[in-house]
């Protein structure tokens, strides 16, 4: 980088271009994203803790007249969501092998499974005899499933964006950060759901 140049503007540009090349040789984004997910998981763990404390100490836990949650449909839902984690893994494998259509098909399948889960969740919510404000249990139930559902929704949205971007030519020249991050996010959402399912459906 020459500093004898007369034109200050030219100089600036040269300096910052060189800087960028060196600085961003390694991409830190995925690393940063995983740090973020770890931090995010603490929110869920806090809600879980709250749930456990309430359940073990509250007097009238379930809303009056309510027997307990139905497990069968949520179990199907769970199976779908958990399997989608494998599907998205295959999508990623196809992308690594530069098989774009394989990637798109499996990616779309993941989205479909995620949407199915959301649909199932919505159906379950409609059928429940209690609401958000029906005592601590109602609040906790909707808070946990709702907050998780919001994550699933975000995941599907991100997947949609990634699917769209796969049609941009040469999109993956500089790496596949977006796809990898979305996939990590999806696995995260999945693991959280398993814990959540055990906590509110299995442990009744």
């Amino acid at each position: 980088m020459s500093t004898t140049s007369v034109d200050p503007n030219l100089n600036t540009k040269a300096a910052s271009l060189e800087g960028h090349g060196e600085d961003h040789e390694e991409d830190h984004r995925l690393f940063g994203f995983i740090v973020f997910l770890l931090s995010e998981s603490v929110i869920f763990f806090s809600f879980f803790t709250g749930y456990i404390v309430f359940k073990t100490s509250a007097g009238d836990w379930l809303p009056a007249g309510f027997e307990g949650l139905e497990v069968r449909e949520p179990l199907i839902n769970t199976a779908v969501l958990v399997s989608s984690s494998f599907v998205i893994y295959f999508a990623e494998r196809f992308l690594h092998k530069d098989n774009l259509w394989g990637f798109r098909i499996f990616w779309l399948l993941t989205m479909a499974m995620g949407s199915f889960f959301l649909y199932g969740q919505a159906v379950e919510w409609m059928g429940l005899p209690f609401g958000f404000t029906s005592g601590v249990f109602g609040g906790m139930f909707y808070l946990l499933t709702g907050f998780h559902g919001l994550h699933v929704f975000t995941g599907v949205l991100l997947q949609g964006i990634m699917l769209g971007r796969s049609f941009i030519p040469n999109n993956y020249e500089e790496g596949e950060f977006g796809v990898e991050a979305t996939s990590w996010f999806w696995h995260f959402v999945d693991v959280i759901w398993i814990l959540l399912f055990i906590l509110i459906y299995v442990w009744q």
Partner: peptide, 14 residues
């Protein structure tokens, strides 16, 4: 911050 703040966030949301 990474470990503790989300707990406060959870409490604040509730």
């Amino acid at each position: 911050q990474l470990i503790g703040l989300p707990a406060l966030t959870a409490g604040a949301v509730m």
